[in-house]
Simulated assay, not measured.
Amino acid sequence: MSISIKLDDELKDRIQHIAGLQHRTPHAVMREAIAQYAEREEARERFTQEALASWQHYQQSGRHLNGDEVRAWLGDWGTDDELPAPECHD
């Protein structure tokens, strides 16, 4: 698929400069930038959907952990005293 995009002169110059520094074509730089943007936005959408699903689950069940419980659990990750995940409660 081929898509056209119009760039202002300043952005075009910036992309050409980056491409020159990296010994790549402007086309390759733009493709990589667009791919990274798409991946970032897809990850953001997955995070949003997971958060909405978690919120719905909480509203239905009332089961949760509070911030202090989560911080304590995460704070010992990678130590000799690593704790198991805390149990959710109502």
Rank of each mutant, 00 (worst) to 15 (best):
C88M: 10
L83R: 08
L52K: 14
I3H: 12
G20S: 15
H27N: 13
H27L: 13
M1A: 04
M30P: 02
P86N: 08
G62L: 13
H17Q: 13
H17T: 14
Q22P: 07
E41H: 13
R63W: 11
S61E: 11
R46V: 00
S4D: 09
A51E: 14
T79F: 04
E87L: 11
I15W: 00
E39G: 14
Y58P: 13
H64F: 15
E41F: 06
A51G: 14
Q22S: 10
Y37Q: 05
A19W: 00
R14S: 02
Q49P: 00
G20Q: 11
H89F: 10
D90K: 13
A28E: 15
L11D: 07
G78K: 12
Q49M: 02
R40Y: 15
M1N: 02
W73L: 02
D90T: 12
S4F: 07
G62R: 11
L65W: 14
I5L: 12
R44Q: 09
Q16K: 11
S54C: 15
L21I: 04
R71L: 15
Q59T: 07
L52D: 12
R14D: 01
V70K: 08
G62M: 09
P86T: 07
L74P: 12
R40C: 11
A43I: 00
Q59K: 15
E69V: 04
E10K: 06
S4T: 12
G78F: 09
H17Y: 11
Q49Y: 01
W73M: 06
Y37T: 00
Q16I: 06
D90P: 14
K12V: 00
E39M: 08
R63K: 15
R14F: 00
V29M: 06
T25E: 15
G75V: 06
M1I: 01
N66L: 02
A35H: 05
A53P: 09
P26Q: 06
E50W: 08
W55H: 14
